[in-house]
């Protein structure tokens, strides 16, 4: 994030009249103390916990070295969950990049400023609805005899025999399908801001060259919003690697571990099986994974800043 404040940092805050240092530290102390106790301490103790056999809280535990990590990477359930995570995150990256770009393009091509505003507001408003409500309702739509089955029946397609989330072969795709058509979200705002920032002369030139519709989107717009594309890819990846909301509410990792992901494996180890050590090991593993992606993101941060200014 360091590059963000570069323009501001160019003129550092002038020191005011001399104040006793303890007063100034007093202003920072509450925030710092909370961060140390509730952010830093858990992060560091998580590393330690992952090398202990801590079961229930308060019971004596022992240092066991890398045993938990060995257990993790020899567990076929966990190794399979990595694959499911990659599938879900991969789908999320494609969906989270392509859909908002297309919708932002559609909104951007409207002539009426009022309608552009209404559509953006409407799609964003869905983010207020509790995710729990949406996922639960999708659970009903995907259940046996649910809405999706009825649509399949209407179209003459075979429906699910037991419910889309209850069949091993359809459960993972069904989780991806939750939220269809995946329009709502901050992605539209990100892309819309990028499109507005494109120099109108470029668009005029493209029009003179006879470039319009999908051709223009692919050859003119996409290269110009590449920073936004990178950002949404990274954000979707980070979200996809640690998410387990649908598993928590609907499948509990089943049926037969077919929707198990590392995040839910962690939750289950800690709060259902009471194995805090093993769960912490999953947390550390996911942290390393996400942190690497964050570092890659840092490389691209400058380009994603281009649209932060809305120029």
């Amino acid at each position: 994030m360091a590059s963000t404040d570069a323009p501001v940092a160019a003129k550092p805050a002038k020191p005011l009249r001399r104040q006793p240092l303890w007063i100034i530290y007093g202003f920072v102390l509450p925030a710092l103390a909370l961060a140390l106790v509730f952010d830093y301490y858990p992060a560091i103790s998580g590393l330690y916990l992952s090398m202990t056999n801590t079961m229930e809280v308060g019971i004596q535990s022992q240092f066991v070295g890398l045993t938990n990590y060995v257990a993790l990477f020899t567990s076929s359930i966990f190794l399979n969950s990595l694959w499911h995570m990659l599938v879900l995150a991969g789908a999320g990256m494609i969906i989270g990049t392509v859909v908002p770009l297309l919708v932002a393009e559609m909104i951007f091509h409207l002539a009426s400023g009022r309608w552009r505003y209404v559509y953006r507001l409407a799609f964003l408003a869905k983010m207020l609805v509790p995710g729990m409500v949406i996922v639960e309702v999708w659970g009903y739509m995907l259940s046996v005899g649910g809405l999706l089955d009825r649509i399949c029946q209407f179209l003459g397609l075979p429906g699910a025999q037991t419910g889309w989330l209850v069949d091993q072969h359809t459960a993972l795709p069904a989780i991806i399908f939750i939220g269809f058509p995946w329009v709502a979200g901050v992605g539209i705002l990100i892309y819309y801001a990028g499109l507005v920032a494109i120099d109108p002369e470029i668009l005029d030139a493209a029009a003179v060259d006879g470039s319009g519709g999908l051709h223009r989107v692919l050859n003119v717009d996409v290269p110009l919003v590449l920073g936004q594309v990178k950002l949404t890819v990274i954000l979707s990846a980070i979200g996809g690697f640690q998410g387990y909301f649908a598993q928590f509410l609907l499948t509990q990792g089943g049926p037969g571990w077919s929707t198990m992901v590392p995040g839910y494996y962690m939750y289950q180890s800690a709060f259902i099986n009471g194995d805090m050590g093993l769960a912490s090991a999953v947390g550390v593993f996911l942290f390393v994974l996400i942190f690497s992606i964050t570092l890659i993101n840092m490389k691209y941060l400058r380009s994603s800043q281009d649209f932060a200014g809305q120029r």
Binding site: Y40, Y41, P42, G46, V57, G283, L286, F287, I290
Partner: peptide, 27 residues
């Protein structure tokens, strides 16, 4: 130092801290 310590936490995802945070909360 204080500023970057605080801001650096933006790179720590919730999955790392959830379990140890619960242990802390229990204590």
């Amino acid at each position: 130092v204080v500023y970057y310590m605080l801001i650096g936490l933006m790179m720590v995802p919730g999955v790392l801290t959830m379990v140890p945070l619960f242990v802390l909360i229990s204590h």
